[in-house]
Design a protein around this nucleic acid. Sequence first.
DNA 1: TTGACGTCTATTGCATGCAATAACGAAATC
DNA 2: GATTTCGTTATTGCATGCAATAGACGTCAA
Lengths: 257, 257
Amino acid sequence: MSGEAMARPGQQLKAVLRLRELLLSGEFGPGERVAEIPLAARLSVSRTPLRLALLTLAHEGLLEMLPGGGFVVRDFDPADIADAIELRGVLEGTAARMAAERLTDPADLAPLRAAVEAMEPLVRTPEPGLADFERYVAANEIFHARLLDLAGSPMLRRAMAQAMVLPFASPNSFVLTQADLPESREILLLAQAQHRAILEAIEAREGTRAEALAREHARLAKQNLKLALGDAALLASVPGAALIRRDPVDGGRKIAS
Amino acid sequence: MSGEAMARPGQQLKAVLRLRELLLSGEFGPGERVAEIPLAARLSVSRTPLRLALLTLAHEGLLEMLPGGGFVVRDFDPADIADAIELRGVLEGTAARMAAERLTDPADLAPLRAAVEAMEPLVRTPEPGLADFERYVAANEIFHARLLDLAGSPMLRRAMAQAMVLPFASPNSFVLTQADLPESREILLLAQAQHRAILEAIEAREGTRAEALAREHARLAKQNLKLALGDAALLASVPGAALIRRDPVDGGRKIAS
DNA sequence: TTGACGTCTATTGCATGCAATAACGAAATC
DNA sequence: GATTTCGTTATTGCATGCAATAGACGTCAA
């Protein structure tokens, strides 16, 4: 992963990566307007590639274009995060279903199975350390990537990539958060059981079951989100948490746009 | 709709709109490289805003960035289109389910009901003319927009917008195609029955049913796609059909020969 | 004749200068 | 004293010039 779709070693890419980093680290407050000129100086790029980078991040959803011109840092309320996770679950459910429906050769499951088996010992470690969690995260990422491969749909891959730009929507967003929780092992065991079940469902060509399982799997993240929202210390360990606005949004859930 | 998210009256917007039009009309062959300088002259904009427009369309999925620089027109095979429609169905299903789950005041359903009722006489017209179809298309678009409103999820709205950039994935893509088909009235009646059922399910807070119905609703488009792919004359009436590559994929990406 | 290498050209990417516009502040009038 | 209007300033958006790079073509050698 982390292979930027268009790996072009240029000022533009540099600006995107660096600015994304800054945004996720909370360097700019939510809703704050980002000015081009000081930012260009800070990132050591000219305004032209910076402008391209700003547009890219706006399309990714981290920035918002103002009608009058310029960009502001987008902020997310808890409902947005929950919906982002829900959406990821829906898309991963679709991936799982497609994988089940389109599977032709059982041997194609090997990479997915390998990822599942790589996680197995890690969830059974009695006293997992940080290194264990990190290895789990790596294997987990591979699992989700292979699942997407199995779906065999470029369009779905695209939608997925779009949905996962927000770091707290990614499959691993709350894994490291759990590390400090007492119930972490329990959660990991459950997650791993779901991994196995998804693999099993795909192997049996049970598309609907695979979809339901993948959705439920994403709900684990939603559950962890609730935990993290109640504990500021936990929230700090979530990447991009700085973009989360805790205070109740004025309009709340309003229909119109 | 057609409200460009950021309505900024500038050269950039002009370039985006005009270029998108050109791409969808098939002015450039699929896989063809688009050169900046002649294009800038053709669109009467400078290279700088054009560059921004190119990036925007690349993010939308109509263009692809080359590793070495520059852009090519993206092409889609039939499987891509089918998946795009499937994906739209999945997202609309999610919208319907959320609408059902989150409905608080039944009065909020009024706009959706109005759209359904606006379509009712149109599908019962014995000999529908082009004008009838166009009014149906307008009401249909409103229906889908209101459904999305009811979901009350900015994140879903975003994902939906992204998925519907491809014109053949939009709810109305094949409606006008049907106009020439003998079974068109039958299809419209079925579609309208689904509209009513979706409304009913949301009203009854039956989320799962609403989701299943919305998915099935999208499959009508998939069915029409199959019809259109078999008939070149029909395909010509589908917006953006020029981007569809009929021949089976081979891995190679060749540039206009 | 074919393949490889070198040169050349066309195209992209980047920087900077300029103009227009929107926001801010100050002053004057109601 | 508050509000409105005008002026100023800073920031964005756009255009153009320049440099670097990738691709094409031609030539030379095997």
